[in-house]
Design a protein around this nucleic acid. Structure first.
Length: 548
RNA sequence: GCGGCAGUAGCUCAGCUGGAUAGAGCAGCGGACUUCUAAUCCGCAGGUCGGGGGUUCGAGUCCUCCCUGCCGCGCCA
């Protein structure tokens, strides 16, 4: 609820300026949560104005503090060296509970986005194999980010870029083809960079059933057909896996379509017209160095084929033309070196590179009881996301993927995630939700009346109760900060904190007490907590079970 | 070599886009279930925020220089 406090301080500042005690300078009013002993809210405006007001911060603070008048404010203090500390009345805190009970899951919605269109492109894994753990983290971050941005008032579009063209798809076809041969007992040299995962063998078995005469066809033709068919099968599997991970997309963008519709040529033509294309060694190069890249990049190979990068230029041109307020790409951190050239291309085509934000997702190290699980790519031995979901569950996987800043390494311990104990942060939060549901259930069973909406919240006198309310009041700020900084992990931390406060409270106090008025008041607090936990979990794509 | 990211408690990590005495979980030790779910709670301990310099009322946070680790640096995608 910082925004309400901001406007309150703003009003005081304007009043002070109007009477001439402070100069008319614009400042950003910043509200913080100070240590409890100082107050409920604090602001540092005085420091920001001190220089131009030619007064010391303390004096400025006194002037502003003097003008703060609001029915919700209990006291205003100025502390050295110039902080203004506010303490709010009980009615302020109670109104927050009322607001949560009234707004329900809409509590924390904000208008940061103001309906502006934002596109988030994530996962975009090649349809040449199943999703692995790394994709899972990207999926969790991307999807959660979308949910948060939506709550913050953006019109979000989720897109998956399908790399369905080029060498790797052909290689998929060759790999399946080779496996078909082997299944028929024929000696065949498996392609050097082929896909060696078991799923290729499965595909080959299926292909032999579906296309009985596939091996009688000329190799080129067979490979092409198998590539096309295999790619579709794998994409279907990817989409299914994502669905079980609670992730769905609004649109799929095909790289192949860029080739087919001449979009690549178009994009390159634009670059050429602007003078960013030159020929060298029989290839066409993009002068990305002029726009901040380390070296120039080939866009059309000697053999006349456009590079992957050329397609990506066309893809980003298409995105830019679609007129988003912001495009967010969620990439694996190993692609970081790729950012400058894409930004260079965007700039070269006359768009603002700031329209593109790239989120880099760091590697996930898989552990089992603290020991690393080998993830060697040898023999295509990757750990599939599907396996992880089956092993630890969708909720645990998503939550744990979101327990770190996305650009930090993540240690994912499968045994801890599976363990249904205190070590597991997912259950900790879900349990708090379930406990509140349980209170309600018990009350119904025992015919105990509960009416959170008609409760006298002033009965909530305990320090633990006030702590919870303070925390609840921060939810909108956390949502906004997560959206502003594109950092879903803030929600995860917030929920853990909130759950912790609730568990403490639950252990120390009873909700279903004899005193009806107190019972209702406490239950109102619980309901508000439940609503916020459930909504927070929703933002993470994690379920909020009513019993566990 | 160049570039990106990181370095905070024994371990894994937060730290609100510069704020007041740097936090949490785990691991360790000791306690709490005839009560609304013990998947929980309560208490104890733990620090040169990698190092130096700088910017200012104020730096874990910003600038600079070192040290260390991970990762990128294809006419691969």
């Amino acid at each position: 609820m910082k925004s309400a406090v901001v406007s309150l301080v703003e009003k005081a500042l304007k009043a002070a300026q109007a009477e001439g005690s402070l100069p008319e300078v614009k400042v950003q009013i910043n509200i913080e949560y100070p240590d409890k002993k100082y107050g409920d809210y604090a602001t540092n405006v005085a420091f920001l104005l001190a220089k131009q007001a030619r007064k010391n911060p303390r004096e400025v603070a006194e002037i502003i503090a003097h003008h703060i008048k609001d029915p919700f404010v209990a006291s205003v203090d100025v502390a050295e060296p110039g902080f203004i500390n506010l303490r709010m009345k009980e009615s302020w805190w109670n109104s927050i509970i009322e607001q949560i009970l009234r707004d329900k899951e809409h509590f924390g919605d904000c208008n940061l986005g103001n309906g502006k269109k934002v596109q988030v492109e994530f996962v975009s894994a090649n349809p040449t194999g199943p999703l692995h753990i790394g994709h899972g983290r990207g999926a969790a971050v991307g999807d959660s980010l979308c949910r948060i941005l939506q709550k913050a008032g953006f019109a979000v579009e989720r897109e998956y870029y399908i790399n369905d063209a080029g060498r790797q798809i052909r290689m998929l076809g060759e790999s399946i083809w080779a496996r078909c041969k082997e299944l028929k007992g024929e000696e065949v040299k498996f392609p050097e960079d082929g896909y060696r995962g078991n799923y290729v063998i499965e595909l080959a078995k299926e292909a032999l059933q579906k296309f009985p005469d596939i091996l009688n066809m000329p190799k080129e033709k067979a490979v092409e057909r198998l590539a096309e068919w295999g790619k579709d099968k794998l994409l279907e599997k990817i989409i299914n896996d994502l669905k079980s991970f609670n992730v769905e997309f609004d649109s799929f963008f095909s790289e192949k379509s860029l080739h087919q519709e001449g979009k690549i040529e178009e994009a390159l033509k634009v670059l050429k017209e602007k003078g960013y294309i030159y020929e060298k060694d029989g290839a066409l190069w993009f002068k990305s160095t002029e726009l901040g890249d380390e070296k120039d990049r080939v866009v059309v190979r000697t053999n006349g084929e456009p590079t992957y990068f050329a397609a990506d230029i066309a893809y980003h041109r298409d995105k830019m033309k679609r007129g988003y307020y912001l495009c967010i790409n969620v990439w694996g951190a190993d692609h970081h070196g790729y950012i400058p050239r894409v930004k260079a291309a965007i700039k070269a085509m006359g768009y603002d590179p700031e329209k593109l934000k790239v989120l880099l997702i760091q590697m996930v190290s898989l552990l089992r009881d603290g020991k690393p699980v080998s993830m060697s790519k040898r023999e295509g031995e990757i750990i599939p996301l599907r396996w992880l979901i089956d092993e630890v569950g969708k909720d645990a996987a998503r939550f744990i993927f979101l327990t770190r800043k996305c650009d930090s390494h993540l240690d994912f311990d499968i045994e801890v995630a599976k363990r249904q104990t205190e070590e597991n942060p997912v259950f900790y939060v879900q349990y708090a939700h379930a406990r509140i549901c349980s209170i309600k259930r018990i009350a119904e069973e025992r015919n105990i009346s509960l009416n959170p909406h008609q409760s006298d919240l002033s009965l909530l006198k305990e320090e633990e109760e006030k702590e919870i309310i303070r925390k609840l009041s921060q939810f909108p700020d956390i949502v906004e900060a997560s959206a502003r900084n594109l950092e879903p992990h803030r929600i995860t931390y917030y929920l853990t904190d909130l759950a912790s406060l609730f568990h403490s409270y639950y252990n120390r106090f009873r909700v279903l007490v004899e005193d009806k008025a107190l019972r209702n008041a406490r239950f109102a607090l619980c309901e508000a907590t439940r609503i916020v936990i459930k909504e927070g979990l929703r933002l993470l794509g994690v379920s909020a079970p009513e019993e566990m």
